[in-house]
Design a protein around this nucleic acid. Structure first.
Lengths: 238, 238
DNA sequence: TGAACACAAAGTGTCGACAATACGTGCGCG
DNA sequence: CGCGCACGTATTGTCGACACTTTGTGTTCA
């Protein structure tokens, strides 16, 4: 199905791996490729119209992102979502929300150009919420918080935080997809409050808001998971 | 120089990449390969007696660890040590010291088998200190703190912390190598105190000790860097 | 003398092919 | 009828070769 999906000829030299990496990454994070799906090197190579080598390198990069799992001498599959480690995930995520938001508040008042960048991300988030576009919402939310982390200025934190947000995207996707109707406007307001605190340089307030914001998200996802668990149990009783 | 450095024939199938990765990684962290050294794929491939493909994959993994930098269409070099980001590095390191040590204290009293593992690492650290072996000291110190992070139980923290400790190894190596004579016994004592606090389940004390411990290391390295800067300036004045 | 162009060298990015390994299938044997 | 073994199949791990890009050098022209 669909031999070469891009009719545009091979662009520049080093772009093969990049293209495969970005495409697969997006598809995995959007849950178009469900966890456990096998990723066959030869199938991928003729889907993208290139040799196995760049495909292989893309898979290696995805593996180092823990997005795919390589079974030696067998095939590689889309990594499972690790529900068991969820509490630890939430803990780490909350910590990074706090650290980055606090850090941003310490520098916010003196970096107006970065504030406009944060505002721009927030604008995209608002647009996505109004358009009821779950994927765009998650994407914009990630970019919003990464922009805040950038303002905070610690690249080690930014890197770790980005990773966490990416890993969580699949869960968020799972979650958002269940209520496309009731739009979570509260997040928009919380983001606005965060921006205000950062701009005012109020670190304590920023910290509090980060805690609340993280708590909000964590709670909602946990409720969602609980609902799912109930449903799964109900189904298994039939 | 030294064609195939391992006379033992290719062991198992998937071990080529692994071997190159581990060897280069060790050499980079031990500063045997200095920052900026070019890593030539063909030279490496005949050094290890294998094709370019596994070498390439090893370099890709090293690049995702930020240990090497790939210059597109040119070659890849050992990454520079980023002195500009040092304060950020220390901040992140201190945070992770605290988080993991605190977390370990919360679980320490209920996991005696992991405590013995931590003690074992401490034993190796003591041995390395007494043997005046800087490399072994750094290695054991890393394993000691990773064991504590394991006890704390959050794999996201453990992963991030491990990365940080690895990135810092080169700086530590630089630093330790300057005073092979005066052995830092204080670190040994601090480690002992940390073990005691974890075992007692005293989270506040663990946190305090982590702060002190991190501060100790950070201060020493900063002093070292200041000395170096002075020397460098003195040299440039000749 | 200086600058721009062409050329050569070095090294990567990509390719197609081969060999090894793990899994599924069918057979034979108890 | 069930279990183990050999074989076929699918897919990876590795290889050698070729094409493209970049850098440095030498040459020519103003």
């Amino acid at each position: 199905m669909a031999a070469a999906e891009e009719t545009t000829k091979a662009k520049t030299r080093g772009s093969g791996t990049q293209k495969v990496y970005e495409t697969l990454r997006r598809e995995i994070l959007a849950m178009e490729l469900t966890p456990g799906s096998p990723l066959d090197e030869v199938r991928l190579s003729d889907r993208f119209g290139m040799s196995r080598t760049p495909v292989r390198e893309a898979l290696l990069r995805l593996a180092s992102d823990t997005l795919v799992t390589t079974l030696p001498n067998r095939n590689t599959i889309v990594s499972a979502i690790n529900f068991a480690d969820m509490p630890h995930y939430f803990e780490a995520l909350t910590l990074m929300y706090r650290i980055t938001t606090r850090g941003a508040a310490a520098r916010g008042p003196h970096a107006p150009e970065m504030m406009t960048s944060i505002r721009a991300r927030q604008g995209e988030f608002v647009a996505a919420v109004e358009a009821q576009d779950a994927f765009a919402m998650i994407e914009a939310n990630r970019e919003f918080h990464v922009a805040i982390a950038d303002l905070a200025g610690n690249p080690y934190y930014t890197g770790f935080f980005s990773r966490l947000l990416d890993e969580g995207r699949r869960i968020l996707r799972l979650y958002y997809s269940t209520f496309e109707d009731r739009l979570p406007r509260q997040y928009v307001n919380e983001h606005e409050d965060i921006i205000a605190a950062i701009e005012a340089g109020d670190r304590e307030q920023a910290d509090r808001l980060a805690i609340d914001h993280a708590g909000q998200i964590v709670r909602q996802i946990q409720e969602y998971l609980a609902r799912e668990a109930v449903q799964a149990r109900a189904l298994s009783l039939e």
